[in-house]
């Protein structure tokens, strides 16, 4: 039998983590409990974060939007500040798992699992998310690109937990786009996904483009060359086609059972073309 601790406040959390340094932390259980099921041997002590209200906060803080790591996908998805202002994130979360998984899984879980196919991650990359970490004694904050170091690898020290992410104030994006290609329409793991933020001039010229892809590399991937290729040009099939080409070169997908690397590379570029339809 494993110990299961449900700290009710942060003080109890630090105590639990100090008393059981080997303990595994989880919130929704949709990743960790699935992995533990496949593991032989005695289960580790578990610390469940679901009761920590401090981690479930969604609020504006000094011009930033703070999304608590313990907030469930459903909670974030339904929050007016996300629904209305961050459709790129809302669409990604709506495509994640299933209603039950969205009711259980949390943003922090998606971050710490750090799968290149994590559905919430490409939007967080283009939104310039910073990850807030806390421990009993201190806190630190780092860009998501530094927090996530590789598949399943994150910059998290012993005694630290993810408190949430901070999203800088929206910078007047004309177009927010998310598309996920899966093997089916629900309960699907992304074969490729794309999050895009575009700011266009009144003439339809791209002033800024931010692009991030899921499932085409060890982490969510950006392609600065592709972003640069769009900048200063009218949004259309010509510019997007060129960006698609450059993106295909920049990404480093692998073959797996779900799709080949060449399919992922091709489709990652193709997904940009969809932006032509979505001209603002």
């Amino acid at each position: 039998m494993a110990k299961v601790i449900l700290p009710a406040d942060m003080g109890q959390l630090w105590e639990a983590m100090e008393a059981h340094p080997e303990a595994r932390l989880y919130a929704g259980g949709t990743d960790l409990l699935v992995r533990l099921r496949a593991q032989a041997g005695p289960p580790p002590a578990l610390v469940c974060l679901e009761r920590l209200e401090e981690l479930r906060i969604i609020e504006e803080r000094g011009g930033e939007l703070f999304l608590g790591a313990g907030a469930t996908h459903a909670q974030i998805l339904e929050h007016p500040k996300v629904r209305g202002r961050l459709p790129v994130l809302a669409r990604a979360l709506a495509s994640l798992g299933s209603p039950q998984v969205r009711n259980m899984g949390t943003l922090g879980g998606n971050l710490v699992t750090a799968s290149p196919a994590g559905d919430s991650l490409p939007p967080l990359y283009v939104l310039g998310a910073e990850v807030q970490l806390i421990s009993r004694k201190a806190g630190r904050r780092l860009p998501i690109t530094e927090f996530i170091k590789g598949p399943g690898r994150v910059d998290l020290n012993p005694g630290e937990v993810v408190a949430g992410v901070c999203l800088p104030k929206s910078e007047g994006w004309t177009l927010q786009h998310f598309e996920k290609v899966g093997r089916r329409d629900a309960l699907a793991i992304a074969l490729v996904s794309l999050a895009a933020l575009l700011r266009l001039s009144s003439e339809g010229v791209v002033e800024e483009a931010r692009l991030a892809w899921g499932s085409v590399g060890p982490t969510v991937m950006r392609a600065p060359q592709a972003e640069a290729a769009l900048k200063g040009r009218p949004l259309g099939l010509a510019s997007l086609g060129e960006a698609a080409e450059l993106a295909g070169q920049a990404l480093t997908p692998i073959d797996d059972l779900r799709a080949s690397a060449s399919y992922r590379r091709r489709v990652a570029g193709n997904l940009l073309l969809r932006l032509a339809e979505r001209e603002a």
């Binding site: 299961v4 449900l6 259980g29 409990l33 699935v34 578990l46 679901e50 039950q100 259980m104």
Partner: peptide, 12 residues
């Protein structure tokens, strides 16, 4: 809320 009882532990 709809949740999965195979991924919840009794303590929860």
């Amino acid at each position: 809320q709809a949740r999965l009882s195979c991924l919840m532990l009794a303590a929860q």
